[in-house]
Computed example of a mutant assay.
Amino acid sequence: MDVLIHVFVGLHIVGIGALLGGFFSQLKAMRAGEARMIPAMLHGALTMLVTGVALVGLNQADDNSVNTVKIGVKLALLVVILGLVYVKRDEEKVESAAFGAVGALTTANIFIAVLWT
């Protein structure tokens, strides 16, 4: 079971990388007011959601303790991120505030995962 959990942790990190990498690739365009929500950002957020749910289930099945408050906060942030990316995915230009919110919430999600013990 540990190997499966580690595989899903790796896939979760890949999702974070796709979401944050997509954000960073658009920073220069954001400064010019021409940023877009690229497909990698949507796919990364969906990957994070699927693997995160799988990780909670696998950890509970393995009788590991799960901090449900932490998971709830991370899920709430991810739902907001997914909502923003999904709604704005077809727009030619996304407002800097909405685009910056995706980057800030993704970064907050990472820090919650790492620092909240």
Rank of each mutant, 00 (worst) to 15 (best):
5 I>D: 04
6 H>M: 13
7 V>S: 00
7 V>C: 00
7 V>T: 05
8 F>L: 04
11 L>E: 02
11 L>N: 02
12 H>C: 10
13 I>K: 00
14 V>P: 00
14 V>I: 15
15 G>C: 05
16 I>G: 10
17 G>Y: 04
18 A>R: 02
19 L>D: 11
20 L>S: 06
20 L>R: 04
23 F>H: 10
23 F>T: 13
24 F>T: 11
25 S>D: 12
26 Q>H: 09
27 L>R: 11
31 R>W: 13
32 A>C: 10
33 G>T: 14
33 G>Q: 14
35 A>S: 15
36 R>E: 12
36 R>V: 09
37 M>K: 00
37 M>E: 03
38 I>S: 06
40 A>Q: 11
42 L>V: 13
43 H>V: 12
44 G>E: 03
44 G>H: 01
46 L>I: 01
46 L>Y: 03
47 T>S: 07
47 T>I: 11
47 T>V: 15
49 L>I: 13
50 V>E: 06
50 V>P: 03
50 V>D: 03
50 V>I: 15
52 G>A: 05
52 G>D: 07
53 V>D: 02
53 V>R: 09
54 A>Y: 04
54 A>E: 06
56 V>G: 01
56 V>W: 07
56 V>S: 03
57 G>D: 07
57 G>K: 02
58 L>V: 13
60 Q>C: 10
61 A>M: 13
61 A>K: 04
62 D>E: 12
62 D>I: 00
63 D>C: 12
63 D>N: 15
63 D>S: 13
65 S>I: 08
66 V>Y: 07
66 V>K: 03
67 N>H: 06
67 N>C: 01
68 T>S: 14
68 T>H: 14
68 T>Y: 12
71 I>G: 04
71 I>P: 06
72 G>H: 09
72 G>W: 03
73 V>I: 15
74 K>N: 11
75 L>E: 11
75 L>Q: 10
76 A>G: 09
77 L>G: 06
78 L>C: 07
80 V>H: 06
80 V>M: 11
81 I>Y: 01
81 I>C: 01
84 L>N: 14
84 L>Q: 12
85 V>N: 09
86 Y>Q: 14
89 R>Q: 10
90 D>V: 08
90 D>C: 07
90 D>I: 08
90 D>Y: 09
91 E>H: 09
92 E>S: 06
93 K>I: 07
93 K>W: 08
93 K>C: 09
94 V>N: 10
95 E>S: 15
95 E>W: 00
95 E>R: 05
96 S>E: 14
96 S>C: 00
97 A>M: 08
97 A>P: 00
98 A>Y: 10
99 F>K: 08
99 F>M: 14
100 G>E: 07
100 G>Q: 05
101 A>Q: 09
102 V>I: 15
102 V>N: 02
103 G>T: 01
105 L>K: 01
105 L>P: 00
106 T>R: 00
107 T>Y: 02
107 T>F: 13
110 I>Y: 01
111 F>S: 02
112 I>W: 05
113 A>I: 02
115 L>W: 07
115 L>G: 04
116 W>H: 11
117 T>I: 11
